[in-house]
Design a protein around this nucleic acid. Structure first.
Lengths: 122, 122
DNA sequence: GTATCTGCAAATCATTTGCATTCTG
DNA sequence: CAGAATGCAAATGATTTGCAGATAC
């Protein structure tokens, strides 16, 4: 995997950003520094970064995938109203039961859906 | 929500099936009993059944959504090799921390990715 | 130098939607 | 009957891909 300008910018952006971003949001942000980067390149790099574990993804909240440069194992809470994604810790011991059953877990994703504090007021 | 033949067949199929199915798999199965059902109708009904909570979904395992008629709260384990989806129990107490933080959780999805027993042998 | 990556544009594919018609309550 | 659901076909929109030129190592 080559260390291209495009990949560096994409990774740096995702790591600097507190919130989870769609591919297009990444594209728009990175385009400010590499004006002629293409969306195809963004997708290809997101795919490689996912595979190498440098980023993670939150899948199909609305219709698209959200990418996250914060890769500590954590759960996501998605507000049904505003779609905002909040982070929460998860207990890694949960994997144990599955490993004991003979499966080999290498990643887990936990997503809670509900209503965040702000939206409960409306 | 009207109780149409199409909706009954779709729900019955998902409840009878042990495995999680894509919209097209549901379509193919239901088409054996309602030959001229359309894929649009399948999608519309899956959306309504999801909303009413009669089915649940496992999102974006490859590219599409999988639907599940078994709606007891459970975790999914997805094999990275064969993509098969296995069910596991989850502990509802996990929601407590999030509820304590002022969020209102009404659904949770837990997805583990890894390698199943069969694929570990290859 | 060469394999990998890029930009571009076209293709793919799951899902959604508009509309005229049919069916459920 | 009236509102909701259907079938069909076309539209949408996120993601992928083929290709020729550019770049990292």
């Amino acid at each position: 995997m080559r260390n291209t300008t495009q990949r560096k910018e994409i990774l740096e952006f995702l790591r600097s950003k507190r919130h989870h971003c769609s591919a297009v949001q990444v594209y728009d942000a990175v385009r400010e520094r590499i004006p002629n980067i293409s969306l195809g390149t963004v997708y290809r790099n997101l795919g490689q970064l996912l595979e190498s574990g440098e980023i993670i993804s939150v899948e199909a909240v609305d219709k698209c995938i959200y990418y996250d440069g914060f890769i500590e194992n954590h759960a996501h809470f998605v507000c049904k109203e505003c779609k905002e994604i909040f982070d929460f810790p998860i207990e890694p011991e949960k994997r144990k039961a599955i490993n004991d059953a003979g499966f080999c877990v290498d990643t887990e994703r936990v997503v809670y859906y509900g209503t965040c504090k702000a939206c409960q007021k409306n």
